[in-house]
Computed example of a mutant assay.
Amino acid sequence: MELLTPNIGLLFWQIVAFGGLFFILRSFAWKPILASLKEREENIQSALDLAEKTRREMAAMKADNEKLLAQARSEREAILRGAKETADKLIAESRDKAESEGKRILEQARETMQNERQALIMQMKKEVVTLSLDIAEKVLRKELSDKSSQEKLVNDLVANSSLN
């Protein structure tokens, strides 16, 4: 049982050795260890703060990038919409211009045709008149070769003119 109950002397020297070791460690080891632990804790805390700051900055940059991307998309849509409107306007203007040009050309062709028709009718009338006069002249020469037929023609013409 001697092993289970320590001797007072042994206990005293163990306490003295422990106290001495405690004093030496406290004086020379714990201060540098605690200082290095405190420094390490500060480094870790600053690293955590920097990581948190970086995370916030990254979130802000991501939000800014998304905002810029949305703005760029809206500008692209506006540009595309404007280009489409311009293209539609140009197409409509071209179509209107082509239609008006076509109508003008068609009207000009109709007018030309009408003028040619009038000229043709006038020429035909001239030719008919000329032919009629030639025929009438020949007929009159033949019929008016004697004096009695001339008198009869004059009387008929006078009778017809008073009726009209």
Rank of each mutant, 00 (worst) to 15 (best):
S46W: 05
R110V: 03
I105L: 11
T54G: 04
I105R: 15
M122S: 12
K53L: 08
M61A: 15
Q114T: 07
L68R: 11
T112Y: 02
D96M: 09
I79S: 07
S94G: 14
D96R: 10
A59C: 02
S100G: 00
L106G: 03
I105K: 14
S94A: 12
R81C: 00
T112F: 02
M61G: 03
R73F: 03
S94I: 01
V139T: 13
E57K: 15
E143G: 02
S94N: 14
E85A: 11
T130I: 05
S46H: 14
E111W: 04
A60V: 09
T54W: 04
I135M: 05
Q118T: 06
A78D: 08
V128G: 01
E85M: 06
A59S: 11
E127R: 09
A136P: 00
M124H: 09
L131H: 14
S149C: 11
S74H: 13
T130D: 15
Q114S: 07
L50W: 04
E57M: 12
E111L: 13
D88N: 05
Q118I: 08
Q114M: 04
R104S: 08
E52D: 13
R110D: 02
K138H: 08
L50Y: 06
K138N: 13
N65C: 08
A63V: 11
L68G: 01
L106S: 11
E75Q: 15
D64T: 09
A70N: 15
T86I: 02
I105V: 12
E85K: 03
L50C: 01
A98S: 12
E75M: 10
R55W: 03
S46D: 13
L140A: 14
E116C: 02
S94L: 05
T112H: 06
Q123P: 00
L120H: 12
R73L: 07
R73V: 05
A78H: 12
D49M: 05
E116K: 09
A51D: 11
K97Q: 10
E137F: 06
R76C: 01
S145T: 09
S149L: 12
E127K: 10
E85N: 07
S74C: 04
R95Y: 04
E75C: 02
R55L: 08
M58Y: 04
A47R: 15
M122Y: 14
R117G: 01
K62T: 14
T86M: 01
K62W: 05
D88E: 07
M122A: 15
T86H: 02
M61W: 09
S46R: 15
K53D: 13
G82H: 06
E116P: 00
R56C: 01
A70G: 05
E66Y: 06
I91Y: 03
E77W: 03
K67T: 10
S74Q: 15
K126C: 07
D64P: 00
D146N: 12
K138W: 03
G102F: 05
M124I: 06
E137D: 09
R104V: 04
